[in-house]
Simulated scan of single mutants.
Amino acid sequence: MITVRNAREEDIPLLVDIGVAAWAQAATGLADLSTLRENARIAFQQFLVAHWLRAIVAEQAGAVVGWAAREALDDEITDLWVDPARQRQGAGTALVAALEAEIAAAGFEAARLQTHARNDRAVGFFRNRGYGVHWLSVAYAARLDRDVESVGLRKQLVADEPLGYGPGGF
């Protein structure tokens, strides 16, 4: 069974390791991992030290198997990382559901996120949970020294109210 809880400061080293492992899996074939792995580790470390209070973790049998975050506490899911050895066991689904509940409780009508357009596993994961492609973009990434394609995904969390009066509007 998967449980979701708020991250704790002492979780940071493990969350960094999970983030790096999941990032490396997603970036395979898209970048020179040996060159960028240390940059990724530093980025995860800096993010989590500054924002661990905005992260949630998924546990399975008492072990942390993944984490997710909303960096600005708005409608955007900025991070979702599950240990590659523990993927496809419900942790990602539980984390996304928890963040969607937080987003709706904060008064937002939809959840949004972005990922690399060629990250087929992530795009498929979110599409299978009701997210649709909202935008596509290409921008130069200095760290990779090349253009990177991104995709923005969005999911409506609150049903649109009909316009007009009476049931169904008019």
Results as ranks from 00 to 15, higher is better:
1 M>T: 03
23 W>D: 02
130 G>N: 08
28 T>R: 15
139 A>H: 12
62 G>V: 03
60 Q>E: 08
124 G>I: 02
128 N>P: 06
107 G>Q: 03
63 A>M: 08
70 R>G: 07
111 A>C: 02
5 R>D: 01
107 G>I: 00
44 F>P: 00
151 V>G: 06
68 A>H: 01
139 A>M: 10
71 E>T: 09
12 I>W: 09
41 R>I: 05
43 A>R: 12
53 L>N: 13
26 A>T: 14
72 A>Q: 08
53 L>G: 15
55 A>F: 06
132 G>D: 10
123 V>N: 02
49 V>K: 11
101 A>Y: 03
57 V>H: 00
153 L>G: 06
6 N>M: 11
141 A>S: 12
24 A>L: 13
34 S>K: 12
1 M>I: 01
98 A>N: 10
5 R>L: 00
158 V>R: 14
126 F>R: 01
145 D>S: 14
105 A>C: 02
122 A>Y: 07
138 V>I: 08
45 Q>D: 14
102 E>S: 05
109 E>A: 12
130 G>C: 01
78 T>I: 09
25 Q>L: 15
148 V>E: 13
160 D>R: 09
130 G>Y: 07
64 V>E: 00
134 H>Q: 14
55 A>E: 01
101 A>C: 02
141 A>N: 11
6 N>H: 10
44 F>N: 07
151 V>Q: 11
44 F>W: 15
60 Q>W: 02
134 H>A: 15
61 A>H: 13
147 D>A: 05
3 T>N: 02
149 E>N: 12
93 T>K: 08
164 G>T: 07
126 F>N: 01
122 A>Q: 08
31 A>T: 15
150 S>W: 15
125 F>I: 00
98 A>P: 02
145 D>I: 00
154 R>L: 14
123 V>C: 09
136 L>R: 10
7 A>Q: 04
63 A>Q: 11
120 D>F: 10
166 G>W: 14
103 I>H: 00
161 E>G: 09
15 L>H: 08
28 T>A: 15
32 D>H: 09
167 P>F: 06
169 G>D: 06
157 L>K: 05
54 R>P: 00
81 W>R: 09
138 V>E: 12
69 A>I: 08
12 I>D: 04
109 E>G: 10
117 A>P: 07
157 L>F: 03
136 L>P: 00
52 W>E: 07
46 Q>C: 04
129 R>H: 15
91 A>L: 05
163 L>G: 05
13 P>S: 09
39 N>T: 13
17 D>C: 04
5 R>A: 02
42 I>H: 14
38 E>N: 08
76 E>A: 13
91 A>M: 04
24 A>F: 06
133 V>D: 09
66 G>N: 00
7 A>G: 09
125 F>H: 01
153 L>F: 07
79 D>K: 11
13 P>Y: 04
